[in-house]
Design a protein around this nucleic acid. Sequence first.
DNA 1: CCCTGATTCGC
DNA 2: GCGAATCAGG
Length: 171
Amino acid sequence: MSWTDERVELLKKLWAEGLSASQIASELGGITRNAVIGKVHRLGLSGRGKTTAQQPKARKPRATNTAPARPRPTRSVGNTALKADYEPAPSPVVVARPAPVHELEIPPEERATILSLNEHRCKWPIGDPTREDFYFCGRHKEAGKPYCDHHADIAYQPVGDRRRDRRSNKD
DNA sequence: CCCTGATTCGC
DNA sequence: GCGAATCAGG
């Protein structure tokens, strides 16, 4: 992708609005946060209020010449599997109905937004996806699974055997 | 570990 | 000009 006028404008706008580089990167799509930051600097609009002012410490040595020895294994961009990749429930037998927001509180620090959601966080949706206060469970889970143990339990109840102890019917 | 922006420098 | 790699920090 290239920096078309449109994309640059959007970048300026979002940056001005205070979005983080990674957020902007995902908004623009097909770009990494590094690209965004790099562009921001080139445009001369860095230093957006508060940031970690950096001091000219010992710069890194860097490869001294045409070093092809640089291992660069397809760096997977942070939050790749989001938005479009989101799957409600892989289970063919049970529909994981997002529970109402009330009764279902995950500590804010543990919640996952579209941006912090990753391979290690539970993708159980909480709340109404159309609302701003929507979020994902986000608790740590085993890699490879979509949900944390708790929510996996709910999502995978066998159809003919699902009504097990619903206790308080909380999430 | 997750994230943030800042900087360097090979391309 | 671009942006990955790296750095420094939260």
